[in-house]
Each structure stands twice: as C-alpha cells, then as structure tokens.
C-alpha cells in the first residue's frame, strides 16, 4: 500500500515540474468546449454546451489515459523498471500506482475543464450528480489507462506507441456519442457508436446530468475494466518475470 503511494508521489512530482505538459494537455479539450460547444449551430437541443460537456470530459480522460500509457513503457526502456523490480516492494504496486496516477491526473484535468464549462455557461449540478460523474470518469479512466499501458508494454517502442495513440484517439472520439445524439446520427454511425466504449461513459455522464442513474453503462464499464485489468496484469507479469 505504501509502495503505491510512493510510486504515485514520484509521478505527480515529475508531472508537476513539467509545466508545458500540464498546460498543453488542457488546451485541446478547452478549445473543443469553447469553439465547438459555444459556436456550433445545432437544432436538436437548445443548450449544446450542456450536451457536449460530458463528451469533452470523457475526451479529456481519454487523452490523459492514452498519453499516460507511455509512462510505464518509458520506465521500462530507461531502466527504472529493473530497479523497481529488484525492490522488496510488491511488484503489483508498480502497475497499480501507474494506473491510479494516470487516472488521478486525468481527474484533475477534467476538473479544470468542468470549471471552464461552468464559467462559460454550463448548468450547475447537485453534489450527488457530481459525485456520480466523478465515479464514472474514474471508472473510465482506469479502463483507458489500463488499456493504454497494456498496449504500450506490448509494443515496447515509443514511436509505435505514439503512432497507435494518434491512430485511435480521433476515430474513437468521432465515432462516440460525444458530439450528437444517436437520433441525429446516420444509421451506420449510430451502429458503431453503440459499440464504442467511449459512448458508454458519455451516455452515463449525460444520464447523470439529467437526473438519471445509468446502471447499465456503469455495469458495462465495470465488466470491461475488470477484463482489461486481468489482461494488463498478465502482460505485466510476462514482461517482468
């Protein structure tokens, strides 16, 4: 347990000292929120900002998770992992701390985006709704950072991982329900969107914002996260035997 906290402390210290990285990660979602959320003329809703905010929050988490995937791979390439593996600290805490750090960092970023959304006119929710929103974002963060870490560990090369990251982030976002409801999508896009894990997180947050309790999406996210964690643990064990 203390190992997890110590490893996370290291990552947070390092992250906090790279000021450019801290700010640049926020620019893209903020730009989407302001330039698309405020400017896009849509017919299906009177408050597009309220509609798009859940999508942007999940997108922030997505890019935080995908960029974080490279962290454990870098620890491995640069020789840190070997030093950590030779410590008496339980080896699983290396993996757990990394996933928690990536998710935690994503939650900090989504909080800033949420504040920006409120400042430019999004509707204020009740504390319970925010609690649920954070729970869903946390779950999605664990899902995406586990996925990214697994892929990066498997590819084991920064260039390939960066290419993979670029390849999947935009298509994942555009084929989700982030920008428009299923009802206005072309049929083919709606079909894809229904299978996109991003949609589950976005729909769940959107459901929370209108006062619902999204049991089904939460269960789907839980199952997906559990499965991915099992795969990731397996890959991690394989690279560290």
């Amino acid at each position: 347990m203390s190992g997890i906290v110590t490893y996370m402390k290291r990552d947070f210290l390092k992250w906090g000292r790279g000021k450019v990285a801290v700010i640049s990660a926020l620019v893209m979602p903020a730009a989407w929120l302001i330039f698309v959320g405020l400017a896009l003329p849509v017919q299906f809703t009177g408050n597009y900002l309220d509609f798009i905010t859940p999508g942007i929050l999940v997108m922030t988490m997505l890019s935080a998770g995908l960029s974080g995937g490279a962290l454990l791979m870098f620890d491995k390439i640069l020789g840190f992992l070997n030093k950590f593996l030779a410590l008496p600290t339980p080896r699983s805490s290396i993996l757990v701390s990394k996933i928690l750090f990536i998710t935690g960092r994503g939650l900090i970023q989504t909080t800033i985006i949420l504040v920006i959304a409120l400042l430019i006119g999004a509707t204020l929710l009740s504390p319970l709704q925010y609690g649920l929103t954070y729970f869903i974002l946390f779950l999605f963060g664990v899902l995406i950072s586990t996925f990214a870490t697994t892929i990066a560990l498997y590819l084991e090369d920064h260039d390939s991982y960066a290419a993979f990251n670029t390849m999947i982030s935009m298509p994942l976002f555009f084929t989700s329900s982030a920008l428009m409801p299923y009802s206005v999508m072309p049929a083919w896009l709606a079909t894809i969107a229904h299978f996109n894990p991003l949609s589950y997180a976005i729909d769940a947050v959107r459901d929370v914002t209108v006062g619902g309790f999204p049991a089904v999406p939460i269960i789907v996210l839980l199952v997906l996260t559990g499965g991915l964690l099992a795969i990731c643990t397996h890959v991690f064990r394989k690279v560290t035997v």
């Binding site: 290291r10 000292r17 020789g79 840190f80 070997n82 030093k83 030779a86 410590l87 008496p88």
Partner: peptide, 18 residues
C-alpha cells in the same frame, strides 16, 4: 532476497526532474 540486496543496473536511471 530483494530485502537483502541492492541492484544498480548498467543504464543510469535517475529522475532528472527530481
């Protein structure tokens, strides 16, 4: 075993931002 030893690998791995 890991409690009784220390290992310094070949590639210098120290966090330069710390």
């Amino acid at each position: 075993v890991r409690k009784s030893l220390s290992y310094v690998p070949q590639d210098m791995a120290v966090d330069i931002k710390l």
